[in-house]
Nucleic acid binder design. Structure first.
Lengths: 336, 336
DNA sequence: TGTGTTTCCGTAAACGTTTTCGTCGATTCT
DNA sequence: AGAATCGACGAAAACGTTTACGGAAACACA
């Protein structure tokens, strides 16, 4: 349209447009006096370099694609916030897409971002099937998975130690005197959730208590799912004194179901989650949970991605961060 | 890098690269037989068009910039989700930036997005000062403001009728018997918040009750601010039977402060918010509030923007959507 | 003074598309 | 049969940059 280009500036300054480019890029191949003059003229004319044209010749866009299952999920939006700010500091912008928990859409937006020639992609995959549908793509553009464990898979990822985190959660409940702990929301279609369940089983075995599991047959851990599972479970008398949820969102659903049944938390039932989404800290909820360090996840993921952009043919790497217990008010000690 | 271009396909197919372009763009200037052959070869070779090169010649990127104060804010992330999905359906991708509630940063990312040659920008401004700092920019690229009212300003925006919404909220509390209603969180530096306060004042005058206002001197309505204001207010005895907050986040802060003081909601104090962020629906919170239709806001904003992209020199437009009361459990009726 | 070196700047190619224009053969019309 | 029309395709320009290359002037050294 009507924006001012490098050529326009060159014409006004009476130099070639290579000179203008050099003046702005901080090249040494230019005299100090002309540089100052050209820069001044650029400012006067309100010239801003066209990133598209630059991308064309530089063969990189300084854009990184971000694929999340849904941005309106507190865990993801918190991470996205950290990611965007850090990325911008590193000279990159973020192009964000929702996969809407749908494998086909996930593939579609991945391909879209490839066509956009993003320099790299960070994604929270829909599930462990994502690897299969995407592996031809991830070979073509630097990709880092986040949050989801891709054990034994030739992919780059950063996540927390889910198994250890859930093991610690179980042990914490045990230490409060709980012996009948229901694990709510186990899922098969996500390595992350398998690991969390593993952590629970490991702790049970170690502590000598019997594992009790309520599975989630869906592909998503939502408030709604937590509510449904808990509601059904609360329909008949139950012996458990504590519920350990595979995710905070599930726990919030449990709170709702408990509330409707008149079950008080923590007086009648102790409750734990996993993720430490921002909701959890709100006083009426005050959920004891396991923290995923969102900022560190974001920073590690971006660092890893930038490394791969620099050197695409290095072996795949993974980073496992430590989760930490966040003790609030949803659990209480009981005597046996 | 090593991706396959139009030229490569042309060479294999034995046609000029104009023909390949035509085959994919659905141009009529090509024979049906060659089109099929070329398309097949494209698929075989795994060709995906380079959007950057296309943008270069088409003079449009099909990218729209989104500037939010902070994506990790449930109101904004909900809207962003709707926006991204709808935008993608319309053939656009979203480049997201946080202004972090900072006018300088807001200006910086706006300029950045202009350099990216985005086709248009949708933004939730930091405050009403945004107009001043940005008006030279908004003249250069189609821009739509969202959520914030820009009354009498030559800008395009879509928002809810904040004054009416808050007036209805006040009337609702009055109808429950409340006569001493504290309005918490009024702010001067946002037209939206001025309008909300106006709605409260209007209702007070109409109903013949005395307005009582606790101002927020900061530039942001956060849980933390709500907590501080309420905590201070709860320090000494107060006559109000209800608190009406300028935003849901403030109300959640009030809940926290009330909780600490042993003030029960709604038994001891009725509480209302504004926005209907997703938190508010959670059973332990169950906040009565005024709904902003996020999806309609997103859709209207994008429609308005796409119109302006098509015809940039039409007069500025605004869209005002209707808010609606969402009655939950944080208010109770009292007798006078 | 001649040669080599350095500094500064201009020329032009390249990036991967879209699209205008021209051309060539085939078809239609008179 | 000749002219006009049409359909299908190729050649090439254009978009706004970056940068390799080359050249001219200025300077240093022998």
């Amino acid at each position: 349209m009507g924006f001012v280009t490098l050529k326009d500036v060159a014409k006004v300054a009476g130099v070639s447009y290579a000179t203008v480019s050099r003046a702005l890029s901080g090249s040494p191949e230019i005299g100090e006096s002309t540089r100052k003059r050209v820069v001044r003229i650029c400012e006067e004319m309100g010239y801003t370099p066209n990133s598209v044209a630059r991308s064309m010749v530089m063969k990189r866009t300084n854009i990184i694609g971000l694929i999340v299952t849904s941005i309106d999920n507190p865990f993801m939006s918190e991470m996205t916030a950290h990611l965007e700010i850090y990325a911008r500091q590193c000279g990159y912008n973020l192009m964000v897409c929702n996969s809407s928990y749908n494998l086909d859409l996930e593939k579609e937006v991945f391909s879209l971002l490839m066509g956009r020639k993003v320099d790299g992609i960070i994604m929270i995959p829909v599930g462990s099937e994502s690897y299969e549908t995407l592996k031809t793509f991830t070979a073509q553009v630097p990709t880092v998975f986040i949050g989801e464990n891709m054990i034994d898979l030739p992919e780059n990822y950063v996540s927390v130690d889910n198994a250890t985190g859930m093991q610690q959660a179980t042990e914490y409940l045990y230490s409060l005197g709980h012996r009948r702990i229901l694990y709510l929301g186990a899922r098969d279609n996500s390595m992350t959730h398998q690991l969390r369940a593993d952590g629970y089983y490991t702790a049970c075995k170690k502590l000598g208590i019997e594992p009790i599991v309520l599975r989630n047959t869906g592909s998503r851990s939502s408030v709604q799912v937590g509510y449904s599972l808990a509601k059904k479970h609360f329909d008949k008398p139950f012996p458990e004194t504590a519920i350990l949820c595979a995710a905070d969102t599930l726990a919030i659903g449990v709170i709702q179901a408990a509330y409707e049944k008149g079950i008080r938390i923590p007086q009648d039932l102790s409750l734990m989650g996993f993720d430490n989404i921002s909701f959890s800290a709100l006083p009426p909820i005050s959920l004891t949970t396991v923290n995923q360090p969102k900022q560190e996840l974001a920073v590690s993921a971006l660092d890893m991605l930038l490394n791969r952009i620099k050197r695409p043919d290095t072996p795949h790497t993974k980073t496992i961060l430590s989760p930490s217990l966040v003790i609030r008010d949803s659990c209480r000690a009981i005597e046996n």
